[in-house]
Amino acid sequence: MDKVTAVPALADGRRPRADRARQVADLLRGEITHGRFGGGRLPLEAALAREFGTSRNTVRDALDLLRDEGLIERCPGVGTTVSGERYPHGLHRLLGLAEVLHEHGEVTNEVRAMSLIEPPPAVSGRLGLAAGESVVYVERLRRLNGLPLSLDLTYLVRDVGEPLFDADLEHNDIFVLLERIAGQQLGLAELSLEAVNADAHTAAVLGAPRGAALLMIERLAHLADGRPVDLEFIRFRGDRLTMRGHLRRSLNDSMEKTWP
């Protein structure tokens, strides 16, 4: 039997260079967000080409992709450097933004709107409210170390939402305040995550280019007793946040509760 020589996937000349560049970009993006390049400077193109078993042209194309995402900068005579930190946001626990990012700096909240409203049926239905029952609506621009990070639109059931009119929303997560008001912890949350493009108004508020990629989260939080109390629509700047979590596959998966 003839000996078969393994060919590194990245060096497979039969694949389009754009495919190989995308593959290198994915691997480099992960290493950047996990802090491999602590000094902020990436290795030279030749070193990266050796590491990934591909050509310098492929590496150059991969770096161009990351530059277009705003993750790196490429300057003649200086090299390739990380242009902005992406902060990790865990998906395995129900936490407020300040709780998630406390190791990375100070989260502050600018309350752009807050009022008692009669919500649309779509909101009433998710919160389990009767038609015509009011909710508290809160809109916040959230910053980390002064940099815009997310725009949050929140609908709260009235009995736990109204006390927030007298609370310090600038320096506190709503989750923490809700637990104090309700006298019990939050329990589970139903969550969906998708990518959306920033409209002109949202882009201006977040200080992002129009059409920039945003991470959009819809989250319905329940108290420990199962009652839904907080429906949020959160738009995160995609260039400043990385979603991370731990997923476990078990034999009991088919028996676990799934949410629509």
Results as ranks from 00 to 15, higher is better:
residue 104 H to G: 01
residue 14 R to C: 08
residue 43 P to K: 02
residue 61 D to C: 07
residue 35 G to V: 06
residue 9 A to I: 13
residue 125 G to Y: 02
residue 111 V to L: 01
residue 44 L to G: 12
residue 126 R to C: 02
residue 98 A to R: 15
residue 97 L to N: 08
residue 34 H to K: 04
residue 96 G to K: 01
residue 41 R to M: 08
residue 133 E to Q: 14
residue 121 P to W: 04
residue 55 S to T: 15
residue 117 I to A: 12
residue 16 P to K: 01
residue 113 A to Q: 09
residue 90 G to S: 13
residue 13 G to Q: 15
residue 14 R to S: 15
residue 83 S to F: 02
residue 63 L to F: 03
residue 34 H to E: 13
residue 31 E to M: 07
residue 118 E to M: 12
residue 57 N to D: 15
residue 77 G to W: 01
residue 77 G to T: 03
residue 73 E to C: 00
residue 82 V to M: 09
residue 116 L to P: 00
residue 41 R to K: 14
residue 89 H to S: 11
residue 123 V to R: 00
residue 24 V to K: 10
residue 114 M to K: 10
residue 66 L to P: 01
residue 12 D to H: 09
residue 31 E to Y: 07
residue 73 E to A: 12
residue 57 N to M: 12
residue 113 A to T: 04
residue 113 A to W: 02
residue 135 V to C: 09
residue 43 P to G: 07
residue 54 T to H: 13
residue 12 D to F: 11
residue 55 S to C: 10
residue 88 P to I: 00
residue 47 A to T: 06
residue 88 P to R: 00
residue 119 P to R: 08
residue 112 R to G: 05
residue 134 S to L: 09
residue 99 E to D: 15
residue 124 S to A: 15
residue 40 G to E: 08
residue 65 L to K: 02
residue 29 R to P: 03
residue 24 V to T: 01
residue 28 L to S: 02
residue 36 R to N: 06
residue 112 R to E: 09
residue 103 E to R: 12
residue 29 R to H: 12
residue 111 V to Q: 07
residue 69 E to L: 10
residue 24 V to N: 05
residue 39 G to N: 06
residue 133 E to P: 03
residue 35 G to W: 08
residue 138 V to I: 14
residue 62 A to N: 02
residue 29 R to S: 13
residue 107 V to H: 03
residue 77 G to R: 01
residue 15 R to N: 00
residue 100 V to H: 13
residue 138 V to P: 03
residue 86 R to I: 07
residue 128 G to E: 08
residue 25 A to D: 03
residue 18 A to N: 10
residue 120 P to T: 01
residue 96 G to H: 14
residue 91 L to G: 04
residue 8 P to Y: 05
residue 102 H to N: 13
residue 38 G to N: 04
residue 7 V to E: 03
residue 70 G to F: 06
residue 54 T to V: 11
residue 94 L to C: 13
residue 47 A to C: 04
residue 40 G to W: 09
residue 23 Q to M: 14
residue 18 A to C: 00
residue 70 G to C: 07
residue 24 V to Y: 14
residue 121 P to N: 09
residue 135 V to K: 05
residue 88 P to W: 01
residue 128 G to S: 08
